[in-house]
Design a protein around this nucleic acid. Structure first.
Lengths: 207, 207
DNA sequence: GATTTGAGTGCACGTCTGTACACCCAAAAC
DNA sequence: GTTTTGGGTGTACAGACGTGCACTCAAATC
């Protein structure tokens, strides 16, 4: 069982990434050992070096992959946006739940390593989240009613929304797929976004 | 240098806790070794067992301590609450910044271990945060304008506020004490809370 | 068909880990 | 003054760790 040499190599590389993702889910990236990963994959420890110069590079590859998944979520959110606030909110929560469900290894990785990971990993994740906030702020500026908002207020609202999304994602991960709490979490997320929208609509129209 | 035997024991115990807190700040609790801690404290590895049965028990002691600090923050927030919304918000953000500043080892610990820590540690932290949300919901129910809110809506608003607070605390920790971002973070936190309050005030008064 | 390449092997090493055990000696108890 | 207690020491061991090095042998290249 195999194809060309490059295909085989790519397959082992994937196996390493998957094994690292699975093993780090039971604790953290920093608690990962090269030998553990190698054993899980089914190769000898030193073979690891054929794919990554060090464990740290493995970690960075995992961040990159996880951030790709995060960016895919953002793209999907933007793509599925409806017209009125209610459909935007319901749609967004649905998309969020679906994406977290389908990629909970990646989202779990981000949640765990955001504060506990090695410094470069933490930095990359926070950069990713900040970019998400900035992009959302731009989107928000195109919505009705935000025309005379300050740059700063847009960022603040965006940060609130992203924060609520992140918290919801973390809750979904903690609760586990198909758990009884899931419905309650999505309901709560919907209400949270509605409250935020109500706050936004009335912002600056009252003192 | 020493007093009674119990005093001396307590002093070493504290030294172990402080060393573990300091060392785990550079990575995670799970990446901590008994020998590292012992070396940092200045005792021989096996002496560790005179104070804790295992590293896991050390971890649990640290969680307990950190959650105490969190509870102190909540108490202080409630104690300092003013009359009108503006003073409540400004006061709360001030208290939050001061407490995080004065105990960033504990708050940093909570942020890191909330998702990356060992299962019992994660559970304890999430329980602590949930209790904070519930208590805040009770406080909110006593505020003017929330008389006919449902239990569920109160919890949702409470969860939004706590979420914003947690995010702010995490930002303060990441930014570091006395950093230039600090002012921006506190300003942003104030605006966030104001937006949340505006949302709350207008909740259910519009459809 | 002969040669080169490179993913995976196997062994060896020095270092770090948790922890068992016998020990010391000053404070506490008698 | 004698005995007991208990925090801290020192040695020792087995296991896991990262990594260097010489190796195999099938796929790729010529």
């Amino acid at each position: 069982m195999s194809g060309t040499r490059l295909e085989q190599k790519e397959r082992t590389r994937r196996a390493i990434l998957d094994a690292a993702l699975a093993l780090s889910a039971e604790s953290t990236l920093v608690a990962l050992s090269l030998r553990q990963v190698a054993k899980e994959v089914g190769i000898v420890p030193t073979a690891f070096y054929r794919h990554f110069p060090s464990l740290e590079d493995l970690g960075l590859a995992l961040v990159e992959e996880s951030l790709d998944t995060l960016r895919a979520l953002l793209r999907e959110l933007r793509r599925s946006a409806g017209d009125d606030f209610r459909s935007i909110i319901d749609g967004s929560v649905g998309v969020l739940v679906a994406q977290v469900r389908g990629n909970h290894a990646h989202f779990g990785f981000i949640a765990r390593e955001r504060f506990a990971g090695p410094a470069p990993v933490r930095a990359a994740i926070n950069r990713g989240i900040e970019i998400a906030e900035r992009e959302l702020a731009v989107d928000l500026a195109h919505l009705p009613g935000t025309s005379e908002w300050s740059e700063e207020d847009l960022r603040t609202l965006s940060s609130l929304i992203v924060g609520a999304m992140v918290t919801t994602a973390e809750r979904l991960i903690t609760a586990g797929p198909g758990s009884p709490e899931e419905k309650q979490i999505t309901d709560s997320a919907r209400t949270q976004l509605r409250m935020l929208v109500v706050g936004a609509i009335n912002w600056r129209s009252r003192p």
